[in-house]
Design a protein around this nucleic acid. Structure first.
Lengths: 236, 236
DNA sequence: CGGACAGTTTGCGATAGCGCAAACCAGGCT
DNA sequence: AGCCTGGTTTGCGCTATCGCAAACTGTCCG
């Protein structure tokens, strides 16, 4: 089994309130694995045999409709868990997880979960927090989709990504993994065409700098303004 | 304190795996209260001092934007919990809860939660399930808002309500609490005007029968078809 | 070094749904 | 019984956004 240094993960929210020696015991139940860029980690609908903790890289969780359309549920950043189907009482993964960058994960068998939470109740509590937070974020997203127009939603989405996985550059904040217009469209409930138009517009105003699967926010402040502006407060 | 008959609540998902005598102990920590139609149970942003179990009636949970627009997060049916802010680690209610009908609830002080789950781990597990299920429903809703048009979304919303709180009539299924076009609009991310038009249309096709805050699905089957139909499968 | 491809940009017409405004209506209250 | 109020219906013009199609471009690969 791969040996994982406890000190690397001890500070993660998942392990809050867990003693070092306990942590060791928890980690012994896990194995680690590497997923190259653009490989699937699990597929929507598959048996939930494992749950995961992302150590390095980035993972996209996406849900597909019967008719084939996709939405991005979220991007998983290092230190976050994913594939928690079993914790919420589902035997199957409700979404597909895909490494968008070379990624390293810890993997526990689903079967270990009951034992783990019995022995380490903090794990259950922490997971509850996490799931609750995600629920709130979902509601916020629904609120946005209901009340804001596309440009504002895209602004919000980018700011969130920058916040979660932004790399500070001197010319701005770069989103630290490959992300296409299509991806952003699937996060905001629009089309890649519309996203492209919006980003083009922003680029010509110097708000962002962007290229192939790459986005740098040059003026986060002014983007915040866009995100919050009332639909009818006209700009020159 | 109001005495609540354990047999009335023993079968609820929240108490799955809890022994009768334990249940008694849990209920002793609760008080019950009655909220008349159209009274607020708690307000978004308020301190989360209690959590609730709905016994009778119906409660609407709604979230308001800074600019005053609202969305309906969900309708709470009897037997369901709400106001679980504390379980997910939030000190404030993320939404407003309002009785849409005369309602009776059990109320536990937030402060009792840690003790309860320590003594009755099943409670924590059950709550986890519930929250997880709601998360999934949120994702489904996001998916729908991203990929379907308004008419389909309204169809889905009504079918869900009928399913959750439908009263079987010989002429169809009636949604068992007062609900306005505005409410439906806030569930589906559209305007009351559009909902009104859609329902008018359906009414003239004999799909529904509706009036003031009242909706009866006369042809659930045909509404299912609407909900699932592909955007471009033209009807005559 | 030259494809070939995946991602991106852009134009143009079509339209679903919005926003506003006005009229209508059912039921509760006095 | 009649009035008031909150909910509902409907018409009409407008526009944000989609959908399709075509051209463009940075990258990777052989």
């Amino acid at each position: 089994m791969a040996k994982v240094d406890t000190s690397l993960v001890a500070h993660l929210p998942l392990f809050a309130g867990v003693k070092p020696e306990e942590l060791d015991e928890i980690l012994r139940e896990a194995r680690s694995a590497r997923y190259p860029k653009n490989t699937a980690i699990f597929e929507q609908g598959a048996d939930a045999q494992s749950f995961f903790l992302l150590l390095h890289g980035h993972v996209r969780a996406a849900k597909t409709t019967p008719t084939g359309e996709q939405i991005v549920v979220r991007y998983v950043a290092p230190g976050e868990t994913f594939g928690l189907a079993m914790a919420i009482g589902s035997a199957h993964y409700p979404a597909t997880a895909m490494a968008v960058d070379d990624s390293v994960v810890l993997i526990w068998p689903t079967s270990a979960w009951p034992r783990l939470i019995e022995r380490f109740p903090a794990l259950a509590a922490n997971t509850m927090q996490t799931v609750g937070k995600r629920l709130q974020e979902s509601h916020t997203r629904i609120l946005e989709m209901s009340t804001q127009q596309v440009e504002q939603r895209v602004a919000h989405a980018l700011l969130r990504l920058a916040n979660q996985s932004g790399k500070k550059l001197d010319r701005g904040i770069e989103i630290d993994f490959p992300i296409s217009r299509q991806d952003i469209a699937q996060m905001t409930g629009t089309t890649l065409h519309t996203v492209s138009r919006i980003l083009s517009g922003w680029e010509s105003q110097g708000l962002v700098e962007s290229g192939r699967q790459r986005i740098i926010l040059r003026e986060p402040h002014r983007i915040v303004v866009l995100a919050e502006r009332n639909p009818d407060s006209g700009a020159a």
